[in-house]
C-alpha cells in the first residue's frame, strides 16, 4: 500500500467506520438443557479481515461471558470461558482450543465453523436474569491489530448480551 493510498484508507476508515463488512458473530439459539447448563448455537461468519488474519497465523481469542441482571441493573460478569482459533500451516489445519479441553483440529473451514457454532454446553446458574455474550478479545490480539479492531466494523465480532431463557 502506497503512502497516499494509506492516507485515503485512514480517512475512509475514520469517516466510514461501518462501511466495511467482515466477520460477524451472533447467537442463533439459546436454551437451557439442564438446571445449570445452557446450550448455545452461534452463527459465525468469518470473512474479510478476521479470516485473513486467521489464515496468516493470527490467533483469534474469544470469550464467553455470563452476567446476572436484576431490573436493568447488571452485576459484573462471571469469569469468562475462553476459546481461541488458529491455523497451523504445516498441518494445514484449523485448531479450536476450548478452555480446559484438548485442541481440536479441522482441515476444513466449514468444519471449524460448525464446531464454533456448536460450542459445548455452558454452566449458567439457575434462575432468571442471566445473560450471555460471546466476543472477540481485542486486548489479546497482536498490538498492531488492536486499533483497527477497535475502530473497524469488520472486526466487530461480538454477539452483545443475550438473555438466557
Amino acid at each position: 500500500m502506497s503512502f497516499r493510498s494509506h492516507w485515503i484508507a485512514i480517512v475512509l476508515l475514520l469517516l466510514l467506520p461501518g462501511a466495511a463488512r467482515g466477520g460477524s458473530l451472533r447467537v442463533a439459539e439459546l436454551q437451557r438443557v439442564a438446571a445449570e447448563r445452557v446450550q448455545m448455537r452461534l452463527q459465525v461468519d468469518l470473512e474479510g479481515a478476521p479470516a485473513q488474519a486467521l489464515e496468516h497465523g493470527i490467533t483469534l481469542p474469544l470469550v464467553i461471558q455470563r452476567r446476572h441482571c436484576v431490573q436493568g441493573s447488571c452485576n459484573a460478569p462471571l469469569p469468562g470461558i475462553y476459546l481461541q482459533v488458529r491455523y497451523a500451516p504445516l498441518q494445514e489445519r484449523y485448531l479450536l482450543e476450548h478452555q480446559d479441553q484438548p485442541a481440536r483440529g479441522f482441515a476444513f473451514r466449514p468444519s471449524l465453523l460448525d464446531a464454533m457454532e456448536n460450542p459445548p454446553a455452558i454452566m449458567v446458574p439457575a434462575g432468571a436474569g442471566w445473560e450471555l455474550r460471546v466476543r472477540l478479545r481485542v486486548r489479546h490480539l497482536p498490538p498492531p491489530l488492536r486499533l483497527p479492531a477497535r475502530l473497524e466494523e469488520e472486526w466487530r465480532l461480538d454477539t452483545g448480551w443475550v438473555a438466557v431463557p
Binding site: H6, H56, G57, L90, P144, L145
Partner: peptide, 27 residues
C-alpha cells in the same frame, strides 16, 4: 518441522500485520 512452522508462521503473521502496523503507527 515444528520449528520451521513456527518461524514461517511468525513471518507470515508479521507480513500480514504490516498494514495494521502502518495504520496504527500512522494514527
Amino acid at each position: 518441522t515444528r520449528r520451521l512452522e513456527a518461524q514461517t508462521l511468525a513471518y507470515t503473521r508479521l507480513s500480514f500485520l504490516r498494514n495494521a502496523l502502518r495504520y496504527t503507527l500512522s494514527a
